[in-house]
Design a protein around this nucleic acid. Sequence first.
DNA 1: CTGAAAGCGCTTACAG
DNA 2: CTGAAAGCGCTTACAG
Lengths: 348, 348
Amino acid sequence: MVSIKDLAKHLDISIGTVSRALNDKPDVNKQTREKVLQAADNLGYVANQSGRSLRQGTTNAIGFLIESGADTEGNSDNFFMGVIDGLQSELSKHKLDLLVLPCSTDENPENYVKRMVARQLVDGMIISATHTIDKRIDFLSKSKLPFVALGQSETGKNHPWIDLDFEGVARVSIDRFVKNGHRRIAIALSANELNLGSIFLKSYKDSLKRHNIEFSPELVLQANSNDKGGYAIADELLNLNDRPTAILLVHELMAHGLYRRLAEDGLVVGRDLAVIGFRNSAQARMFSPSLTSFKLSLRDLGIALAASLLSTMPAYQKHYSGKMLSQIWPMEIVDGESDAEKIPKNLT
Amino acid sequence: MVSIKDLAKHLDISIGTVSRALNDKPDVNKQTREKVLQAADNLGYVANQSGRSLRQGTTNAIGFLIESGADTEGNSDNFFMGVIDGLQSELSKHKLDLLVLPCSTDENPENYVKRMVARQLVDGMIISATHTIDKRIDFLSKSKLPFVALGQSETGKNHPWIDLDFEGVARVSIDRFVKNGHRRIAIALSANELNLGSIFLKSYKDSLKRHNIEFSPELVLQANSNDKGGYAIADELLNLNDRPTAILLVHELMAHGLYRRLAEDGLVVGRDLAVIGFRNSAQARMFSPSLTSFKLSLRDLGIALAASLLSTMPAYQKHYSGKMLSQIWPMEIVDGESDAEKIPKNLT
DNA sequence: CTGAAAGCGCTTACAG
DNA sequence: CTGAAAGCGCTTACAG
């Protein structure tokens, strides 16, 4: 690996001049700069990041913290690829690289964040899967490392965040159900402590109240955000004495198990039970009858996250207005057949 | 951020001793070590990675190169989460962190690799999505950075790699089709230069020959590995004069569009056209009629990739036999309904 | 416009 | 068992 010393020796100038030429500093002779750039290219020189980081205290990299692990398979993962694409497109404008940091399910997320911060391999972080009480946020706030959260949290309200519009999705869905004649509406939540669950539930309750529908705790079902969870939920739902005629899912993948369980009893989604899923993901688009759900641009979301983060970092904030630090990300309903019929037959 | 200097000053000993204590070096007084560990914990000290890297020439991190971008959404992405989980579980045994390095679709993959290598932020790399001719492999071989490829390539045969058993999948599928009475069998390939395509096609051809079936170029269909691609392929297939009765897909997501296009003509998968997909992914499991496909443990694949990489790295190879540098990863067929009927009706 | 030098935070021979 | 010092590869005031 060729170092700045090698390059300087090869050109017979000092490493200081080489460095200045390479980093576009003023006060470098044009011809000298040309020669340096040329030689760097020839010898394949690229500055060692460790040396640079140590000196500057900056890494030119941004970390994106995600949760990996078996649970996630087929779940939130394809969500991230789109977001990553958007993040990169914004970060690359500033020559920042994106490092995706997967926190294994074996590891405590707070410890993982601590380790990643201590390693000092990124200048800023994007965290995801925020919990209602999220120790990572406390830690990051204390550590002074710039960060933005994908997802809201009750913890530390002074940081930038962007969250999908769970409130709006629940509101629009319930309104739609009610408009189609439903009065007994269930909600399926994730069996975890992610903050989005409480927002979703609150909006559900508020919407019911608006329509003068009494809230029934038995209509709040909880399971994993996947096929199995959906199956379990359908099972539970079918065993209720007074069955709901509609259900709102916090995650579209639940629809799979739900469709399947209903089919086992010869029940048809849309006719016998109205269903609205969450995100109109690639997988959601595969359902038949098609699932009513909500779409968003993952790429734009990634761009917004990057912009939000950069606008808090002194070195970059000049490029950003800094006005939109936190925001609710809108989602647009996509009509499907899963809640098509206005007055569904009762489940029999 | 507390440095080793701070810690040493706080304990009133030299930084050398602190470093030795922290790094489990011999010849440190037991009590001294205790005190250092205690103080490090109290002050939240973790060694700065840049300082350590600069001195040691090692980063204690492994990079996993994947391709991000819009194309990938809902495609190969959920494949990676499982692999990442396995990688981490093996790497964490050696206190190595995993950095996922997403190469944006905007960027030339070779340039990206060069940049990541030059940055010197990882001690080894896992690359994926290998092309038949893959310049990244040449570059990595030259750069002396240890790496392992997920996928075979014609380029540089002396590196370790692990590849899914595309050959076996195609062979088993064709044998199965033939056993069920099919003679006119199509194959759907990806419209890219990934090496897996040529392996898949070769195995398809070889299998046909084994059964004395003549190869028809018109039965080799190409499209993107997604819903749309599958739709296009079905469309093309329906327009053939002498339609095939069976089709083998290189990617299971193609099945979605294929199912959809067939349904438009009132045709039923399994009855009117036998279909075998590729991986029995979470998404593949959602098809109805269920898709015959092949399963594998992504986690175990990740573990094997990590082991393969580490066994080439001097610092870690003592833990590995080094016998299984390269391997074909077996996949097991999962019976579905998509190729159930022995003699399908002809497409009408 | 350029060079010499300091110093970022570590680890590791080398003395003692 | 411990300390003092060198040096990894950079960038950046400071002189000239």
